[in-house]
């Protein structure tokens, strides 16, 4: 995946069964963002692989004050890349599901 400066990882082990997964996101390189975030903490959240889109979550992070609206796309892309990898792994492990 492209290095967006925003890192997204699984916050718990993925057993491949739940549609809702816990993810952790943090800024690795603030220079890649248009506006430097106020906090440099890791944000943990749940994401539903079936019902939600990464862009929706990114928008909620902007509305919650974690990121500036000009960075909503880069945050959404970072989440989307990680989610795509998780879904690809699930499909490899258990084809036909997910």
């Amino acid at each position: 995946a492209e290095d967006t400066g925003v890192r997204v990882e699984l916050a718990e082990e993925d057993n491949g069964r739940k549609s809702s997964i816990a993810l952790r996101l943090w800024v690795e390189d603030a220079k890649k963002l248009k506006v430097k975030p106020k906090d440099n903490g890791a944000i943990e959240f749940t994401f539903d692989l079936e019902k939600e889109t990464p862009e929706d979550v990114a928008q909620e992070m902007v509305e919650s004050g974690f990121f500036h609206e000009n960075d909503v796309k880069i945050v959404g892309k970072s989440i989307r890349d990680r989610v795509a990898l998780i879904q690809w792994r699930r499909e490899r492990i258990c084809p036909g599901h997910g």
Partner: peptide, 27 residues
Amino acid sequence: IAVTQVVHSAGRRFIVSPVPESRLKDQ
């Protein structure tokens, strides 16, 4: 370690905790 919880109006819960230094990229 201070942990902050932010609940978005849509109901999603964001839990903020410090990033361990080992996970920060060298700048």
